[in-house]
Design a protein around this nucleic acid. Sequence first.
DNA 1: GATGAATGAGCCTTCATTCAT
DNA 2: GATGAATGAAGGCTCATTCAT
Lengths: 216, 216, 216, 216
Amino acid sequence: MVKQRRSQIDSSKRRQILPKEIRRKQLIRATMGRIAEVGLSQVTLSAVTQKAGLSQGIANLHFDSKDNLLVETLKFVTDEYNLGLQQILSGTGYLSAQAKLQALVQFQFSRSVTEETKMAVWFAFYGEAKSRPTYQSICADSDRRAALGMKTLMTAVSEELGHDIDTAFVTDGYIALIDGLWLSLLLSPRKLSRVKAKQVVFQYLKGVFPLWSDVR
Amino acid sequence: MVKQRRSQIDSSKRRQILPKEIRRKQLIRATMGRIAEVGLSQVTLSAVTQKAGLSQGIANLHFDSKDNLLVETLKFVTDEYNLGLQQILSGTGYLSAQAKLQALVQFQFSRSVTEETKMAVWFAFYGEAKSRPTYQSICADSDRRAALGMKTLMTAVSEELGHDIDTAFVTDGYIALIDGLWLSLLLSPRKLSRVKAKQVVFQYLKGVFPLWSDVR
Amino acid sequence: MVKQRRSQIDSSKRRQILPKEIRRKQLIRATMGRIAEVGLSQVTLSAVTQKAGLSQGIANLHFDSKDNLLVETLKFVTDEYNLGLQQILSGTGYLSAQAKLQALVQFQFSRSVTEETKMAVWFAFYGEAKSRPTYQSICADSDRRAALGMKTLMTAVSEELGHDIDTAFVTDGYIALIDGLWLSLLLSPRKLSRVKAKQVVFQYLKGVFPLWSDVR
Amino acid sequence: MVKQRRSQIDSSKRRQILPKEIRRKQLIRATMGRIAEVGLSQVTLSAVTQKAGLSQGIANLHFDSKDNLLVETLKFVTDEYNLGLQQILSGTGYLSAQAKLQALVQFQFSRSVTEETKMAVWFAFYGEAKSRPTYQSICADSDRRAALGMKTLMTAVSEELGHDIDTAFVTDGYIALIDGLWLSLLLSPRKLSRVKAKQVVFQYLKGVFPLWSDVR
DNA sequence: GATGAATGAGCCTTCATTCAT
DNA sequence: GATGAATGAAGGCTCATTCAT
């Protein structure tokens, strides 16, 4: 009864890794769905696994604990957003800073980012972050990185336009505005459309960069 | 089975009878405290009542259910904020619209409004609002009233200054900015101070009302 | 601050005794009502006192405990029935045994005895009696006394008619029949009326006492 | 915080997985036991599950709620009884109606049917039936079916004997007698034995069917 | 005596987690 | 790895009882 240790090269193992990641993603998506549907405080593993069409015990199998599943869900949303963000900010194209900023706004109010489910997840975790160090640090990390990139961009824009502005300020305002608009989008989507939200942002940018003519 | 006779010195455990409203407020405050400490999803009645120094059953006695206690807590925070808001907006003094707007900003970033506990409660409920009709409607009601008042104020300011501005836009931006800054204040108070937050708001207003000279 | 000990003759004391009994009866009636309405297992003191139009704590004041109130309620019903029974059995009139038996049947299916509420209370306690020594002994006591009286009556009837019957048997059957008809009356009053129930009893008696001509 | 490793000898606590129906029956039996021991109003899930040697949560797992467990318990007792009843009434043998009636009496006072536990359960639910529609309808259904079958039998007996009797009457009386005797058996088993109870029934039948010679 | 706010033990129920299959 | 029955800790809630007024 000798258990044969699988060679690391064994391709069958690699095949099993993929399903594992798929299972995890399945569960994370189901978790997001439940958060959006019933709120973070009402999420139960049994509803999540059921939504994923899987068995009860599988969440603990892949994530060890419910708490960890939630953390991974937050990370997932956060990482996805940051990835998109970095692609724009550190875009290797020949885009001007102004063009990049325009692209940023488009991205931040794209259907994919402002998808109801994601917004719900986002703010669900924000709402608990204050009292949950783990959430807190994930959010803070993400925010810090994002803020840094945006500030660099703002500075570049300001330089392109020959402005002399406190870009730290502008960035803080910009970020707050985006967050606030997202919240509005989440809570009263009827009142505020994506288009209108973008216009509000552009109006802000016009105020900040008076010399920028072709905003939007 | 010896019944222990309570020492007369142990007055802390003496049963006290107080008016209903006081008890309710006591419990609401304790609830707010727990939300801030452990997050909405981790609030338990036993922790709330313990924090209030009362017995387990008293929460149900005065609020019928945990859910109702939470709703009343949200209402409490909401009402308090709206009261302050209306006092400023419909201030019966001879303040100019500009002065009122200044006062509004001061109020919105006053220590009382931006108190950590309140911010935590605020966003805790926002995070769940999407999936909880009751929270949703309370928040939406409050927001609508607030937005209305602010828009009126913005219009007045714009008229005082002779501006020709789409005040609906400005108001949406203003509100989003405030919300976003509050969120920042909650999540990374070290990065953003109250003072800085106000400066960000004033910067926004300067951009929106270029002719307004003495902002701040 | 010497508390004056009331003289036993003091008429004011006697006046207070009456109200006490009234309160007790009020509570017992309310208890019966609740038992009939929601079942013994669902009776709560707060519902009982509310039905009686009295304050929450009064039940414990007058009966010390809920359990005691229930016991007293059972005793009340039991005593009332036995009183009526004894009045008939030991009737000091010049009634023949046969006339007494007729009267007995009339009594046992009188509106007062078969009142829905009383039947409900009766069987509610029967249902629990097996496992509650206190109920058990009250019921058993009552039953024994009643059985004794009825047996005496049956014997008298049998003697009057010149029958040679095992009256113990007849009595057991009679009692069982009455109990069973009461149960029927309680559970399906639509199927079995009081009148029909009496006819069933008379039919039984006719079978037992063939020589008895004017039954009913 | 040392996790104690379960001894291999302690097999009594080993988690066992069994078919749903077996678990349900286990729990129903335990419920019946508790009803007989402490009365319907004092039954608690924790005592039931403990009696069954299972964990606290299992009752809700298999029955969703305590109330439902009780209903299913009532149904179980009821169904079992009715099954036995129908087997006798619609017996496919060549038994005469008189023989069937004899068998019926034997069955109704068999050890299995008059088992203390079952009688206790029976009357526990009867006691609450009046105020609990669900119990009421289960009992009523059962009673109706049983009554129908018995009436048919009585009619057959009466025809076999050439009697001209109102069998509806006889049946009502018969059923009431049985119920009453069961109650007696439950409350004072010392006073009334199964044998004696049957004699009482036969005495009744003799009275009703005078031409029936070999009763018992 | 009477009231009803307050207490707290005990219940039902939920649900994350475990584990035999 | 996967399943889902089983577990049991913990929570919300009820309600008999107490007691300050």
